[in-house]
Design a protein around this nucleic acid. Structure first.
Ligand SMILES: [Mn+2]
Ligand SMILES: [Mn+2]
Ligand SMILES: [Mn+2]
Ligand SMILES: [Mn+2]
Lengths: 237, 237
DNA sequence: ATTATATTTTTGAACAATCAAAACCGATAC
DNA sequence: GTATCGGTTTTGATTGTTCAAAAATATAAT
């Protein structure tokens, strides 16, 4: 019952995110996926997951996969809370770029005390989302994950608000920033061309921006003026 | 040559502080002292120190003790820099109490990147001392450690400025704060009574404060108006 | 010099986390 | 049903960090 190591925290967080990413979040996460996401060989993940199961943090079915127990889910959500609050803090208070805060938070999330995190939460006014639009769990570990549409699935021609970016790669984030593609930005999808693998959107100052479909799928949106505030969009300007 | 683990960083920092604390800072630090300061058994310290010697970070003489090499000294100073800048940041920007920032910084010092530390340094205006008056090494790892007098050794009756507190215990720090005994505060030592183990000082609002000699030795001072600014005192009000 | 005491080192073992490579299982394909 | 193949688990080993207890050393006392 000692406090979980950062290794354990990372395993739980990764399982949590993998479960959230699949449509049925009660399904088992395959060992291979987990190992790949953590950058370890599959055998290592198996060993670790068996230990986590022993501690009651996950359910483990050999050859099938792993799933968080309620206890594991709560712990994972609190790690995610520390991560996302820390990211927003680094952007808003410290003035770091949204492209670099992920790596920083990846380490700080294991070192910051609950006291510090609560202080940050208060200082930021109990925010609902982080700089990338990811929802921030509350201090009890619960979180709402709205099922947004993406620039690939939203209706053509209608104005939408960018709400979430589901890729933390620094280069990608810098590209988006250079094109004013940050959460809160209003957009309209002009055309989609499957053959050319291209989506053209009109963004800030009516400027046209063309991006590939792989990238477009990483940009989540809501219809303009509908639930934008509820989704935590800061400045729908 | 991988980056040093937090365990290694803690060993180096502890050796550094032990060397600084002894009058001749080139003397060897006994294994027993090191082990006690780190909260490990002596055998553990011996094992670790031999590994550090292998990496060229310390000089180790069996049965005599350990001392930092120039490489180890630089690394240690940079850990201390991260620790102290983080403490000041937590007090000044995050609004935490000076009594609780030490424990927090004890973990954050291993997680914060150089980029974050530089950002904090700039934000704070490249401060010379932390909330407890401890000097902050610069980014090259050099640091001046003035040899202050204490409330036990300073002249009676003369006005002095409190510059440094050499004990991080939270309860002690809260006691000091409750009596306005923080760096920058002007004081006068009225009486010293060896038999009663008591030092009486006159502090803020001419209020009299009596403390034991053990505690008085932990409060470092400089003559008022002389080198106070150079020592990084913030508000000699 | 001999003895006693305190400190230090060594030895043997443990735990956490990891990998490489061999063995294994399960879902398809024939 | 047997062969095949990707994913999974086992096995055996390594590294880092730690402890308990035994052995060794240095220093101080007699
Ligand atoms: Mn992130
Ligand atoms: Mn994020
Ligand atoms: Mn400190
Ligand atoms: Mn300090």
């Amino acid at each position: 019952m000692p406090l979980p190591s950062s290794t354990v925290e990372n395993y739980l967080k990764t399982i949590f995110k993998a479960q959230s990413a699949q449509q049925d979040r009660k399904r088992l996460v395959p060992m291979g996926h987990l190992a790949h996401a953590l950058g370890v060989v599959p055998g290592t993940a198996t060993t670790m997951v068996k230990a986590l199961a022993e501690s009651g943090l996950v359910d483990y079915e050999p050859y099938a996969g792993v799933r968080l127990t309620p206890a594991g889910e709560k712990l994972a959500a609190l790690v995610l809370r520390r991560h996302r609050l820390m990211e927003l803090f680094l952007v808003k208070v410290v003035g770091m770029s949204w492209a670099e805060v992920h790596d920083e938070a990846e380490r700080l999330e294991h070192a910051a005390s609950d006291k510090l995190i609560d202080r940050i939460d208060t200082m930021l006014g109990c925010p609902a989302t982080d700089p990338h639009g990811d929802p921030i769990p509350d201090s009890s570990g619960s979180m709402v994950t709205p099922d947004y549409q993406t620039l690939l699935t939203c209706p053509l021609g209608e104005t939408v608000v960018l709400t979430r970016v589901t890729d933390q790669d620094a280069t990608f984030l810098r590209f988006l920033e250079g094109n004013s593609l940050k959460p809160g930005q209003m957009l309209r999808v002009e055309t989609r061309d499957d053959a050319a693998d291209q989506v053209v959107v009109r963004g800030r100052n009516n400027r046209q921006i063309a991006i590939g479909m792989r990238a477009a799928a990483k940009l989540q949106v809501v219809p303009a003026g509908y639930g934008a505030e509820a989704a935590g969009v800061d400045s729908p300007a």
